[in-house]
């Protein structure tokens, strides 16, 4: 276990370093980008940038200083609004995205696992065909399609829920649903496949042959083992939900980090794009590590490596 985690940790650190390095050099490649010194920029901002990014220094030194800033959690100022820093933006808006994402992840895992298990246990029956048909349907709908459709049906037409904006729990339902539906479907399919595989295993047959109760076999023998591969999907799931939030937050006008990110892409606020990319990357890479550790905890073969 220790060795496993150390290895994953090393991998994550390298991945993070690659992201930071790539973003740094990409940013310096942008023609007319923030570090293009030919570009006419207001004097105040230019000065700010030069100071912040040490544009007078040689490239390698700029890079090292940038790395140093990142390690200290300083993601730099905004290119468009010099009085704001990327850190300010994240501090303000990430909690909103995190809250939305949390509910979406919770819903996707809970509903997905339940649906998948029920389908597997009733393989070939109506409920199985039904839920698997809807699963494939929702997988085929990207969240930026689901979101406006929900908005239209439940907000504009039926007036059941607010069309947009952020505030009460009611505001959260539609965006969270839009984010969660696709991942729910993926988890349901994954759980079903994994469950069917596990159910056909000898140890499940053997457990039944020992006369253990159906519920016991289901929970202790089938579900627990079936969920191990599902855990490996947790990271892509969280990544999908957070990147999905970029557009969903924009569509529902939610003041989350995703909306800021997309807005900064629209008005080419390069330093914010950079900073938020690094932040999101770090966040997702951390989630990846957590998923790996969960996986290791569930599987004794890794736990006691």
């Amino acid at each position: 276990m220790g060795r496993f985690i150390v290895r994953r940790l090393a991998l994550m650190v390298i991945a993070l370093w690659v992201v930071v390095t790539v973003t740094f050099f990409l940013a310096h490649m942008i023609p007319g980008g923030p570090f293009d010194r030919e570009k006419p920029v207001p004097e105040a901002i230019k000065k700010n940038l030069e100071e912040k990014y040490h544009l007078n220094e040689p490239m390698w030194k700029q890079y090292l200083l940038y790395l140093n800033d990142i390690i200290h959690g300083d993601l730099g100022p905004s290119f468009k609004y010099p009085d704001r820093t990327v850190n300010d933006i994240i501090k303000e808006s990430f909690p909103v995205s995190a809250q939305l994402g949390f509910w979406a992840v919770l819903m996707a895992t809970f509903v997905g696992i339940s649906l998948g298990s029920v389908s597997a246990l009733h393989q070939g029956e109506l409920i199985d065909s039904f839920s698997m048909f809807f699963a494939i349907l929702f997988i085929s709908l990207p969240s930026f399609v689901i979101a406006p459709i929900f908005q239209y049906i439940f907000g504009v037409k039926l007036h059941w829920l607010p069309v947009a904006n952020w505030g009460s729990w009611k505001h959260m339902i539609l965006p969270a649903l839009s984010l969660a539906l696709g991942p729910t479907a993926v988890i349901a399919r994954l759980t079903r496949a994994s469950m069917l595989e596990v159910l056909s295993n000898d140890y499940v047959k053997a457990a039944r042959a020992r006369g253990l109760s159906g519920l016991r076999v289901l929970i202790v023998y089938a579900l627990k083992n079936a969920l191990i591969p599902v855990v490996t999907y947790l990271f892509p799931l969280i990544a999908a939900i957070f990147t999905g939030s970029f557009v969903v937050e924009k569509i529902f006008n939610i003041p989350g980090l995703g909306r800021y990110y997309v807005t900064s892409i629209y008005n080419r606020d390069y330093t914010v794009i950079l900073g938020v990319t690094v932040f999101y990357a770090a966040f997702l890479i951390l989630m990846n590590l957590l998923a790996d550790i969960t996986y290791a905890l569930l599987d004794p073969r890794i736990r006691y490596e």
Partner: peptide, 11 residues
């Protein structure tokens, strides 16, 4: 059963 490698729950 035939295959003892798979007859016990690995977890």
């Amino acid at each position: 059963f035939q295959d003892p490698m798979t007859s016990l729950n690995p977890t």
